[in-house]
Computed example of a mutant assay.
Amino acid sequence: MITLKELRSKRKSVAGIEQLTKALKMVSQTKLLKAQHQWRRAQKELDSMVRRLEHLRYFDFLDQTSLEKKEKPIITDSKETVLDPKHLVVLASDRGFCGGFNGKIQKAFLECMLQMQTLKRVTIVGKKITLWGQKEALRYPHVQFEFLHSIQNFAQKDAAHWLENIYKASDNEDLQGCYVLYMHYVNAISQHVVWGSLGNFSPDHKKKFEEEESFFFMEKSVGEYFNQTLPLLLPDHSTLLKSWEKMCTCKHFLSLIQEHLVSEHSARMMAMEQAGDNASQLLSSLQKQYNYLRQNQITKELVEITAALQSVE
């Protein structure tokens, strides 16, 4: 039978775990608010850039056939038909303590590998699933695997430089064949894994431009206007288009990474909250057991004292 000393030790350990989970929850909540702010800012910048891109397309800076190809959803799910994927970027996390966050990503990655038969390259970002990814890479010898160990450094420093290298190495300049597998943020208690193409970043800007007031709305096209006013400063249409699309793609990629980080911090916060609740319940149970044993011990000692007094009398 467990003793009071063992119960005190166990109760102290559980109380320490409860304090630790509460501290981790507060840290995750703070990081979540910061990540949400960065994600909203990135999304707002992306919306502004895509709107400018649509204006350029509207005034013949991009041919209409290319515009029709771009009108696809940003976020896709596993039910969508994937067309000729070449490169898959898998976003995970650097740390654990976030429930089934990394497990869901691993499961979705295996499903993607079954569906994407034309993959040539896979990039896994995040320390937590690096070892697992290295083992899985042995099953796909025809696919080139790349492992980037820190998603925090990748989001803050290396993403734009890495994407520029992908542009240089890619045959398809609009990166339609490059897909990102990440955790889509729904709310604080719900996130699910989706994948989306880096080339699809303009679905929410199909408004009629004639109804909006803008500098670009004039009788002459933008190209004619600038050719008559600043002919030496206006770059070639195709060069301007490619540069602007690269900027939009880079901002779209950074926005997806920020959304993934928001989902990670949210999942960790909810996991720590659940762990804290479990620790509180266990601590309450141990406290009741401790009180019961202590009361039994006190009662036993009182009975022994009473029996000794009666024997003396």
Rank of each mutant, 00 (worst) to 15 (best):
I2T: 12
S13Y: 13
V14A: 01
G16M: 15
Q19P: 05
T21V: 14
K22L: 14
A23G: 05
Q29T: 12
T30E: 15
Q36T: 07
Q38G: 02
K44F: 08
E45S: 05
V50E: 00
R52I: 11
E54V: 07
Y58T: 04
D60P: 00
F61R: 13
F61V: 10
K69H: 03
K69M: 06
E71T: 09
I74M: 04
T81C: 00
H87F: 05
L91N: 01
L91W: 03
A92M: 02
R95Y: 13
Q106I: 04
Q106E: 11
A108Y: 07
F109P: 10
F109I: 03
L110C: 06
E111H: 06
C112E: 02
Q115C: 07
M116Q: 15
R121N: 09
V122K: 00
T123H: 09
I124W: 03
V125C: 07
K128V: 09
T130R: 02
G133R: 05
R139S: 15
Y140E: 11
Y140D: 15
H142G: 00
V143N: 09
L148P: 02
N153T: 01
F154E: 06
A155Y: 00
D158M: 02
Y167Q: 15
H184F: 14
H184E: 09
N187H: 12
N187V: 09
S197F: 00
H205N: 10
K206I: 09
E211H: 14
E213H: 10
S214H: 04
F215S: 14
F215L: 10
Y225A: 07
D236T: 11
L240H: 14
K246N: 14
K246M: 13
L256C: 03
I257P: 02
H260E: 06
E264H: 09
S266I: 02
G276C: 08
A279F: 13
S284D: 15
S285D: 15
L286N: 06
Q289W: 06
E301F: 08
